[in-house]
Amino acid sequence: MSARETILDAVRSGLGNTAVDPAAVRRDADALLQDLPSIRPALLADGLVDAFIARVTSPKVAATAERIASASELPAAVGRYLEAFGLPAVVALQPAAPLQDLDWSGFELHDKVAPDEMIAIGVARWGIAETGSLVFHSGADTPILANFLPLHHLVMVRADTILPFLDDYAAATAGQRPPRNVNIVTGASGTTDIEGSLVLGAHGPRFLHVVIVGTPDSSE
């Protein structure tokens, strides 16, 4: 008997049940996701963007955030960030249209992220107010490593893509073919492996700066 058959047989004999009704299992599984507000934390503020920013900048997440009115202001915002850190205007730009269509004059751009990349700029598909997270899907315009190799990661997210809870992300994508990777990024890379004390920049970015564009009801 194959390992697969042995294991499945052992599971069935251990459970003692004979026939499973898939529809009933499905109903039970769905029932376990009812009344979500009673099993998840409340948001930190009433407005979605405010709640998101409050989480992003909370000590636990320890990232920085700013708001701009329109995506066209992103290059200027990046310029200010680089100046504050005294960094050169040499950046890896995620090969995504919402970023590439902007006016980056004055910057030296490349789209391949180097192992010791100093600065990378990306765009998240969603923000999550509950946790201050950014959600990326791997794809032709989203290399996975771009989120993990740079020391400074600057991420643009549109205000109208900020969802209240992680469950809302699951609901928004339910039934779709998942990408190879869904990366839910919350703050910079950190480790507590030496004596439990938190140090940022373990293997991934040491700094995460989130730029929120527009308002929840703007289409910008």
Binding site: P41, G139, A140, D141, P143, R180, N183, I184
Partner: peptide, 18 residues
């Protein structure tokens, strides 16, 4: 509240993936 990185891995690299 959540780890810095929560990642779902589904299948190998897809057509067009970088």
């Amino acid at each position: 509240d959540v780890t810095q990185y929560t990642t779902f891995h589904c299948g190998p690299k897809q057509t067009g993936d970088r």
